[in-house]
Structure formats: structure tokens, C-alpha cells
Amino acid sequence: MLKKINCIINGEPKEIEVDVRESLLDMLRNRLHLTGTKQGCGVGECGACAVLIDGNTIDSCIYMAVWADGKNITTIEGISKPDGSLSDIQQNYVDKGAVQCGFCTPGFVISTTALLNKNDDPSRDEIRRGLSGNLCRCTGYQKILDAVETTVEQRRNSKK
């Protein structure tokens, strides 16, 4: 059964027809070709499919597309600034070597964005807890932590 939903995706209002059995992840990837959001497990264990829904990090693989009706959704494609330049989080992931195979990276960038929106001065332990819903097998997480801590520090300094 198909159902029409209305939502905002990366700042643009959209009207989309979705299968009522479809996940938000499938809707984003297959209907909107927003393939930056990845599937690593399909059951909410790895965080590769994380998107922001009204500012909260959600695993889109276990979120029904129909639930997105009326919601404001940001995917990795909506994280960069409108002029195409990288967000500070993205830039630090690049500069600190936090990217290897890159398959988990969009999910990590999304989760980091939400974490730092909610807590602008997280401790190392709070960062670890805040990003523990995202799995990475390449980096051992060390350089991801570096990238996040650097962002926190840069934001703190720019406020001074």
C-alpha cells in the first residue's frame, strides 16, 4: 500500500509517495537517491544510517518512512553549508584523519552534529557515550575523538 507523506528534507519541503512497509532509509536512498546515508545492519545496531529528525539522531533503517510525515529531516547531504563548503565537523574529520573506508562516516558526522548541538562542551567520556551508537571498524575511534574534540575547542575559542 502506498501513502503520501509531507516532510522537510535538507531544508526542502517534499511530498513523497511511500510504501507503508518501507523504512525511512529505503525512502531516502531509493526514492530520493540520497545515498550518502548507508545501511550497515538494517536493524539499528551500527548507526551507519543515522539521520537527524527534528534535531535528534535516529537510525533511519528502523524508522518507518510514514512516520516521517510532518518531520524535519537532515541527511548527510544537508550537513554541508548551502555554498557547498564543509561544516566544521566535516572539516575536522577530514583534517584529523578520522575517515578511512568512510562507510560509517556519514552516520558519525550526523551523530556528532546532534551531540554538539545539545552539549557544546562535552567531556571525552560524554563524547564516547554520545557516539557509542555508531560503529567503526577501521579507526579504533581515536581520530574520530580527536576530530570531535578539536571541533569543540575551535567553537569554544571562536566564542571568546
Binding site: T35, G36, I76, L86, V94, V99, G102, V109
Partner: peptide, 23 residues
């Protein structure tokens, strides 16, 4: 020298195409 990997920007923006991303 510590060189930034050439594909990092594509990967942090979701533009790097993996097998499942190619229509």
C-alpha cells in the same frame, strides 16, 4: 608527510559512491 586522503571530502559529504549507491 601527513597527507590528507584524497577521498575524505567525498566521504564526509556522502558523495563517495559505494556499490549500493550506483543506480
Amino acid at each position: 608527510k601527513s597527507q590528507i586522503r584524497w577521498d575524505a571530502v567525498a566521504k564526509v559529504t556522502g558523495r563517495a559512491n559505494y556499490t549500493g549507491d550506483i543506480p
